[in-house]
Amino acid sequence: MRQLALFPLNLVVFPGEKLNLHIFEPRYRQLVRDCLQDGITFGITPYLNGGVSRRGTEVRLLDVEKNYPSGELDIRTKAIGVFELEDFQRELPGKLYAGATVRDLPDDAAADPALHERARELIEQLYGILGLRRLFLDLPTNFRIYDVAHQLGMSSEQEYALLEADTEAERQLLALSHLERILPVLQETERLKERVRLNGHFKNLTPPTF
């Protein structure tokens, strides 16, 4: 276990994700200075249902994109791993920002091949319905659920469930359950839109034989 600075936010960040942040609060400006001076990393813990979640994602500062005269900052970061809180401190000693003792969690990235292929099929359907086929074409064949999680239309709570899953196979099952639930709704919505568009047009219909 080790101590890690924390930056709670109303979002879920996944390992491998690059995240750009605008920093304006004094406590997080101090955190960025410490990252630059001491090379520390920090954790982003989802702030859900009125509290700091037990699991979070460690991120590394890549660079400061812009310094504003007001002291505000635009920064680029990259998520590098998942951890679990053992305790929480609203302020670390001598600091303005929060922190915690954390336990690093292993990354079990082994995917189930059959689930992977099924997920790929459903993601292609989803992106097709949403007019985002380019996203699918750019998707690497060995994608992980983390790579597409923000493009699946999940709620923050559902995304957090992915972060809580210990293995890629578990994440695949969660993603498939979500896709199998929403795709029929989206497909029916598309059919309804088509019926609305055709209303009032001349229709070439074949009468029934009776």
Rank of each mutant, 00 (worst) to 15 (best):
M1E: 14
R2C: 05
A5G: 08
L11C: 08
V12L: 08
F14W: 09
F14H: 04
P15Q: 09
G16L: 06
L21D: 10
R27Y: 08
Q30W: 03
G39S: 14
R54K: 13
E58Y: 04
E58N: 01
L62M: 15
K66G: 00
N67H: 13
E72F: 10
L73N: 13
R76W: 02
T77N: 10
I80R: 11
Y97K: 08
D107W: 12
A111S: 10
H116R: 11
L122D: 03
L122C: 07
L126I: 02
G128Q: 15
I129S: 05
L130P: 00
G131Y: 14
L132W: 15
R133I: 01
L139R: 11
L139K: 06
P140K: 12
R144P: 01
Y146S: 04
V148G: 10
V148M: 03
V148E: 01
G153D: 06
M154Y: 05
M154C: 05
M154Q: 07
S155P: 02
A161S: 10
D166F: 06
T167L: 03
Q172W: 10
L173I: 08
A175K: 11
L176G: 05
S177E: 13
S177I: 00
L183V: 08
Q187E: 11
Q187I: 02
R191G: 02
R191S: 10
L192H: 09
L192R: 15
K193W: 03
E194H: 14
R195Q: 14
P208N: 11
